[in-house]
């Protein structure tokens, strides 16, 4: 966990309500699946976002506009300097990937899988990325996954891009040694049921601090109460009580 100043370099509206914010600053020491807490000027609590890209000198966040704080963040122009805490949460366990990891992302949950895909591909795994959206016009990040050499399949609810149907169909469409998923709770529940211990989920939660102090984001697990921000955001299949 590190706290530092970051300068907004690029703010791109990927699709309506979904922005990719790229910052310059210390993006080192981050594990795929970890998140960042952004101090949004004018708001008290930091806002948590999954990290959709990082390297030694940059940090990329995928920001869905949900309320006033996220709207204010998405409205910032390049040059804005923000205070961001990085390296939060446990991150994905890459050692469990095996040869054929399947990445399943739904909507805004797609972003956090990109640095994971990059790391797994660098490890020599044969990665499949299944990316689910409501429609083709809401899809984003697809070419970024393809650019990493991952087999990339799009699923849309209305069939306007890629395969028609729920992205969880990927569990039947592809062989996999492991599943890494981020998206809405109903999607994760299906994956939990079908992939069990092979699955890892990144959860989303309304947080206070983001580092385990306030107990604001607790969920029930088979091992007792766990904090999404500190004990997660990545949980194993079979661990969560939905």
């Amino acid at each position: 966990m590190k706290k530092g100043k970051f300068t907004l370099v690029e703010n791109t509206a990927l699709v309506p309500g979904m922005h990719r914010l790229t910052f310059s600053g210390d993006g080192s020491g981050i594990v795929p699946g970890q998140f960042a807490e952004v101090a949004v000027p004018g708001y008290f609590l930091r806002r948590p976002f999954s990290v959709a890209g990082f390297d030694g000198g940059s940090l990329t966040l995928a920001v869905r506009v949900r309320g006033e704080g996220t709207a204010a963040l998405a409205a910032l122009a390049p040059g804005a300097e923000l205070d961001i805490v990085t390296g939060l949460g446990n991150g994905f366990d890459l050692s469990a990937a095996g040869e054929r990891p399947l990445l399943i992302g739904g909507g805004s949950g797609v972003g956090v899988l990109w640095p994971l895909c990059r790391a797994l591909a660098a490890d020599g795994a044969s990665v499949t990325a299944a990316l689910g959206f409501n429609s083709g016009t809401e899809s984003f990040y697809v070419s970024d996954f393809a650019a990493l050499g991952a087999r990339t399949e799009v699923y849309t609810a209305d069939g306007s891009r890629g395969r028609r149907g729920l992205v969880t169909a990927a569990l039947g469409d592809f062989e996999y040694s492991s599943v890494y998923a981020c998206g809405a709770a109903p999607m994760l529940q299906i994956i939990d049921r079908e992939a069990g211990a092979k699955a890892q989920f990144s959860l989303e939660a309304r947080m206070g601090c983001g580092f385990g102090a306030c107990m604001g984001c607790t969920v029930e697990t088979v091992n007792g109460p766990r904090r999404v921000c500190k004990d997660g955001p990545v949980f194993r299949g079979g661990e969560l009580i939905w």
């Binding site: 008290f44 309304r206 604001g216 029930e220």
Partner: peptide
Amino acid sequence: PRFGNPTPRIADAPGGMLNSV
């Protein structure tokens, strides 16, 4: 041991925050 209250149990506020942990 106590789990506490159901979530959401954190909210932002002008100049502060609410908790119902």
